[in-house]
Amino acid sequence: MGKLRDPDCNPLQARAETVLTDYAARAQAASGPRGRKPRRRLSGRNIMIYGTLFVVSVYYLLPLWVMVVTSLKGMPEIRLGNIFAPPVEITFEPWVKAWAEACTGLNCDGLSRGFWNSVRITVPSALVSIFIASVNGYALANWRFRGGEAFFTILIFGAFIPYQVMLYPMVILLREAGLYGSLTGLIVVHTVFGMPIVTLLFRNYFTSLPEELFKAARVDGAGFWGIYFRVMLPMSLPIFTVAMIIQITGIWNDFLFGTVFTRPNLYPMTVQLNNIVNSVQGVKEYNVNMAATLLTGLVPLAIYFASGKLFVRGIAAGAVKG
């Protein structure tokens, strides 16, 4: 059909046959389908696709919804009602209580303590680990010294070793260095265990930059740090953002290192949250618990929604080897 409608598409045939054929083709074109293919908006296929995605989305959103509505209800309403129902009477009491009054052990100053601890842990840990890992990646990608690849391979394998295997040796190392239980010690831990993934990220990025740029800078007489700060860094802002996202969410969400390597006064938010919610004493205040949970999830969620595609790029970069 399609061919007949447009005889010009085959010049040989058009030349060989007469105008009559052209006429016939036009007549046929007038009766056959023509123009844009009609599109049915509600085809069975579309209903299936959008229907499935919609149901799955509801399932994924449900926990967030439950957290929000529960945290805005009073305890009487929770005891009587349905956990999925929106609050009849909105109260911010649970949020205030979770932030400023909830008890962990003897301290009753709420999650705010954990929040500030997490900030104090996350900011320096992210900065230090990213700086060190980016220099590693740069040295590996551009300077290619002897043995570099061997160390890097060990590092990547290290990413798969269960932390539990290295936990105790790390405790010993930190204790010997006098850092066990301190903030500095935890920064070291996050730098060490974050190193494989972030180094990989930077190595792959710097390898993807044209090597001739590095060569040109060497001919121009720039040294190791000169090239890093003057040539590489200004070109790498996106990848630094990606690394920031990975590290901040990762460190913020950490629980294991927080319990093993710090003392109670330095517990990060996740550890404190778990202690508040899963403490056995007293009456369970579900609304306060959910407010606390939501508060803890707020920082990574904010980063997630603000960063959008970069977050996706970050986890994809971390997951797919180069």
Partner: peptide, 20 residues
């Protein structure tokens, strides 16, 4: 000798201009 101290100038296929 280091590249910068050999008394050479070099032009690359991809230009290798510093983008920033």
């Amino acid at each position: 000798e280091e590249p910068s101290r050999r008394g050479i100038g070099m032009v690359f296929q991809s230009y290798a201009l510093y983008p920033q």
